[in-house]
Amino acid sequence: MTSLPTVTGDKRLGLVIDLDTCVGCHACATNCKEWNTSGHSAPLTDVNAYQAEQRGVWFNRVFTYEVGGQGPAARTVHFPKNCLHCEKPDCVTVCPTGASYKRAEDGIVLIDHDKCIGCALCSWACPYGAREMDEHQGVMKKCTLCIDKIYNTNLPEEDRTPACVATCPSKARHFGDFADPESNVSQLVRERGGFDLMPETGYRPTSKYLPPRTGNGAASAPRKLEPAPDLANAGKFLRWVDRVLSR
């Protein structure tokens, strides 16, 4: 059913991505590929994996931007991006087959790969470029928030978190329930001013981004080096050393 759920469940699961601490290592993208190529969405096909013109499905891609002009004032911001599990996603409603759907119980947006006809219309409807066609299987694929990991009772409790979150070495990714105002993610959004990407689209992403912290500006101005000491005022010994070294 591609109409959006009319009832909202108890949970709204999503991610918070901290643009202040992300170091752009691509570990989240890599671990995502690793986990998801063998789970719910398996395989994440690669074409020409070891030669020119590689093509393949990735759920998560890490961009790097430069902000605030060029030169010393500019800062580099690493920017991982995957499906934001929007509240009002047209990627669901445009689907003619019912393959693309949003779960009422936790808000996760999923694709039923047995129903998908690979028409690609849902990818056209996503403003964030979060859906990629698996050209071998002829069906659309996207981030599942690691649905086969976060509810997997075979795993120890602390491992039931998306692969990207589990692997991030700088703790730039957080997973939680936005319906609970006291959850880790709700608190982070409140305290750090979490924001939506492209709010003007009206898709109301569940996942949020935290802005990079602004420093006091001390690092942005180039520091002047101390000039070399004037030798005229230096002692006899130092002048002799200078002469010897300058030979």
Partner: peptide, 20 residues
């Protein structure tokens, strides 16, 4: 969402080849 810090410019692509 970085517009508030000034002009935003793409510095590096996430990958070297064209994706879907």
């Amino acid at each position: 969402g970085l517009g508030r810090f000034g002009e935003v410019r793409l510095l590096e692509m996430p990958h070297t080849e064209e994706n879907f």
